[in-house]
């Protein structure tokens, strides 16, 4: 066997052991989805200049500063806040305040635009968040089991996002302290159907909700 024949045999043998791109998987190869537009660096340079010498630095403990302020917030908790807590049916523990808002109050059926009737309870919750200077607010959307599971998850995510946007735009709450989650129909608080298999509209109504957890620390 000549040398060139040996080389070919060796190369073919190596090829057998190397992974071959599978046409059924789009991302087997590195697709540069993170391609950065050429103007991004220029925009970033301008943004950096606008920030000045501090470059927008924040102290790491700036959330902790808020927590320290919490004690004062509790001590000086006004009557209005106590009333607001009662009005929205808030449950308070040592670490957080938990509010459940009925989905039917917040949104029309299958929609994610906030209803006018929901503005007042949301405004009160916004006041509570601000009074406690909460460092972390978790807004989670939930649905009943009507409809496809994936659709319900999406709907619950959008609803939670809508509530976050409302708090940011209408109540002046820093969006960076708010986190949203969409659980769809996966975390019911009541049965969606009766033991005999029939529909349970009351249970489903309870499950259509937005939960807001206002962390105190």
């Amino acid at each position: 066997m000549k040398v060139w024949q040996i080389v070919i045999v060796v190369i073919l043998a190596i090829n057998l052991f190397l992974p071959v791109p599978c046409p059924c998987q789009e991302n087997t190869f590195e697709v540069d989805e993170s391609a950065i537009p050429p103007e991004a660096q220029q925009k970033a340079t301008e943004a950096l200049q606008a920030l000045g010498s501090g470059r927008g630095a924040l102290p790491i403990n700036y959330r902790m500063v808020r927590i320290i302020g919490l004690a004062k917030a509790i001590e000086t908790q006004t009557t209005e806040i106590k009333t607001a807590l009662k009005d929205v049916g808030a449950k308070e523990t040592e670490t957080e305040i938990h509010v459940d808002l009925r989905g039917d109050v917040l949104f029309d059926f299958d929609k994610c635009n906030i209803r006018p009737e929901a503005m007042e309870p949301l405004r009160k919750i916004g006041e509570i968040i601000k009074a406690y200077n909460s460092p972390h607010v978790i807004i989670s959307g939930h649905t009943d089991t009507k409809g496809a599971e994936d659709y319900n998850r999406r709907l619950s995510e959008k609803r939670a996002e809508t509530v976050k946007a409302w708090f940011a735009e209408c109540a002046g709450i820093d969006p960076r302290v708010m986190e949203t989650k969409g659980y769809g129909e996966t975390k019911p608080i009541a049965p969606n159907s009766n033991p005999d298999g029939s529909d349970n509209p009351e249970g489903r109504q309870k499950n259509r909700r937005v939960e807001i957890r206002i962390r105190k620390s």
């Binding site: 925009k43 950096l48 920030l51 927008g56 630095a57 102290p59 790491i60 700036y62």
Partner: peptide, 11 residues
């Protein structure tokens, strides 16, 4: 140095 930096924002 106990500092944090958020992403840059455009105009």
């Amino acid at each position: 140095n106990q500092k944090k930096y958020y992403p840059l924002k455009d105009s």
